[in-house]
Amino acid sequence: MESKFNARYLAIRYGFLALLAGLLIFFSIFANGFAGPRSAVFIFQSVAITGILALGVTCTLVVDGFDLSIGSVATSSLMLSAYMLVILEQNAFVAVVVCLIMGAFVGFLNGILIVRMKVPDLLATLGMMFLLIGLQRVPTEGRSISTGMRLPSGEVAEGVFSTSFLWIGRHRFDFFLEKLIPVSVLIFLGVAFLVWLFLELTRHGRLMYAIGSNERAASLAGTNVNFYKILAYMISGVTASIGGILLSARLGRGDIASGNNLLLDSVAAALIGFAVLGAAKPNALGTAIGALFVGVLLQGLTMMNAPYYTQDFVKGGVLVIALVFTFALTARSHK
C-alpha cells in the first residue's frame, strides 16, 4: 500500500466534509441571513425527521438489509397518533407508546418475513410499505383526522391534540437565545448519539457489521444472525415511528397526504453517509452529516431564491456525487 497521506487518501477521507465546509462558507457570504443561530437551528429542524428515519435505515443497511417500509411506518404512526388522540380521546403518553409499539411490531414482522419466510429484504419491506399505506387509510375511509371531523358512523370526533402532545412538535428550549432549540432537534441528536453508541461501541453493533460483511462467517462464529437481523428491522421501525410522532405533533392533525418524501430523503441521507470520513459503509455519524448536508444545501439555495421545484434535482445531484466518492475512489484505492 502507498503512503497513507497521499492526495487520494485525503480526498476520500475529508473530501466530503471539505465540500460541506465549502458550502457553508459560500452560503454565508452570498446568501443573506444564512449565517446565524436561527438559520442553523432551522436547518437542523428541517432534517430532524428525515435524519431520524435515516438512522433507522442505517441499522438495516449495516446487516446488509434494506427497509423500504420506513416512510409508510412514519405516516402510519402519524395517523395512529391522531387516531388515538382525536377519535379514541387518549392522552399524549398513551398515543406515543402505542405508536412506538406499532413501529417495533412492524419491524418485527419485517424481520420475520425476511429471516423465517426467506422473503428478500427489498420485497418484504416493499410489501409491508404497500400494506401500511393502505391500512392507515381504512379506519377513516381515506380522510385526514382532525378535531371535529365527522366519523363514518356519523358521530363527530371530539378528542383534541393535547398540549403536551403538541409540545413535542412545537416547543423550543431557550439556549442563549430565547426559544431557540426545538424538541425535534434534540430528539434527532439523541437518536443519532444512541445509534452511534450502539453501532460503534457495543459488541452488538460490531456483530451486526460482521453479519453485513459475511453472514455465513458470522453464523459460524456463533453469532445469532436471525436475532440481530430482526433487531435491526425493529430499530428501524421504532425510529420511523418516532419520526411519525414528531410529524404529527408538528402538524397538529392526522394529515393523510404528509410524509410522501420521507422514504427517499432518508435513504439518500444514509447513502450519502457512506462518503463521510471515507467510511464506505453505513455509519451513524455519516448518516447524520448526510442529512445535514442536504439540509444546508436546500436552505442555502432557498435563501438565494432558487425555486422549490429544483430541490429534488439538487438532492439527486448530492447523492450521485456522494456515491462516486464512496465507490469509485475507495474501490480504486483498494487495488
Partner: peptide, 29 residues
C-alpha cells in the same frame, strides 16, 4: 474467504468476533 473472513474488518475485529462478550463490559467493547 466465504466462511470465515470479514472483509471490511481489521485483524483485531476478525480475531475477536466469536468472543466479543469476553472483551466487553455491559455490552460496551
Amino acid at each position: 474467504a466465504s466462511n470465515a473472513i470479514f472483509q471490511s474488518f481489521n485483524i483485531e475485529s476478525n480475531l475477536t468476533v466469536p468472543f466479543t462478550k469476553n472483551y466487553s463490559w455491559l455490552s460496551f467493547l
